[in-house]
């Protein structure tokens, strides 16, 4: 068994030996339901699709993903297990990827457990299931983006609370980077090219097309680049701060 996979396995099972996993999954399922049925008006729209369900995923992830990622590294640093981990024959990159993949798989489990939504919509009408599948994949990729940010931020601090709050703020900026509340900060001094670049960082923009069932290669590249970037920073931060 490769060291990366051993770390992945340990991290993934650790979610389920504590109540964290169950609390998270229940809250996630409850909130996706509430948003889809009440705020998204799933029934009233009278359409056999899951758009009202997927529409709110960025906003749910905004708070729920940092709740998963906040402990990834800050807990290791606080409890001192990072010293154990970093003196085992494992590279920092393996450790970062292993832990990240475990958190991502856990999110995938939570997302997969929303399958009653899919059954419901298929029972009530004839939805385009390829669109639904694309939306699920898109939602999972977006969750991966949020997680990479959260994992990196949790490496900066020993406090899970600080990791949570900072991650939420940064994720919020990424969701809204195409909107005036973020762009206004840069409007007065940054050139138009920078503004366009920042606007193109928006999770919402990239998720909108995926949500319609179109997996555009540009969106996939965007999220992949984002994940690689944050995990790379994560490795650098662990390297620098592991012992402090």
């Amino acid at each position: 068994m490769s060291p990366l996979y051993s770390i992945y396995k340990r991290e993934f099972t650790s979610y389920f030996v504590t109540p964290v996993a169950y609390v998270f999954i229940v809250i996630f399922l409850f909130l996706t339901g509430v948003f889809a049925f009440y705020i998204g008006a799933f029934f009233e729209t009278n359409q056999a699709d899951l758009e009202p369900f997927f529409r709110f995923h960025p906003w749910l992830y905004l708070f729920l993903i940092p709740a998963i990622s906040m402990r990834l590294w800050s807990d290791e640093r606080k409890s001192g297990t990072i010293e154990l981990l970093m003196t085992l024959p494992v590279s920092i990159t393996d450790a970062v990827i292993g832990k990240y993949m475990a958190a991502w798989s856990f999110t995938a489990v939570a997302l997969a457990l929303t399958f009653p939504m899919w059954i419901t919509v298929n029972y009530l009408g004839n939805p385009d299931n390829t669109v639904i599948l694309a939306s699920y994949i898109g939602s999972l990729i977006m969750a991966g983006g949020f997680l990479a940010i959260g994992s990196c931020i949790s490496a900066f601090t020993k406090s899970q609370v600080i990791a949570f709050v900072i991650s939420v703020v940064i994720c919020f900026m990424f969701i809204l980077s195409g909107f005036p509340m973020v762009l206004d900060i840069f409007q007065s001094w940054a050139p138009q090219a920078v503004l366009d670049a920042i606007a193109s960082f928006s999770f919402l923009t990239h998720f909108t097309s995926i949500k319609k069932g179109v997996i555009d290669i540009r969106d996939v590249i965007y999220f992949s680049a984002l994940i690689i970037f944050w995990l790379y920073v994560n490795v650098v931060v662990i390297e620098a701060k592991k012992a402090s």
Binding site: V17, G80, L84, L88
Partner: peptide, 25 residues
């Protein structure tokens, strides 16, 4: 290596912890 204070993953059982070390090693 036994680090100072013998840090270990508290939520794991002794058995699963040793199995994890065996995996990584």
């Amino acid at each position: 290596y036994l680090p100072e204070g013998a840090p270990a993953y508290g939520e794991m059982t002794v058995k699963s912890f040793l199995n994890f070390i065996a995996d990584v090693r």
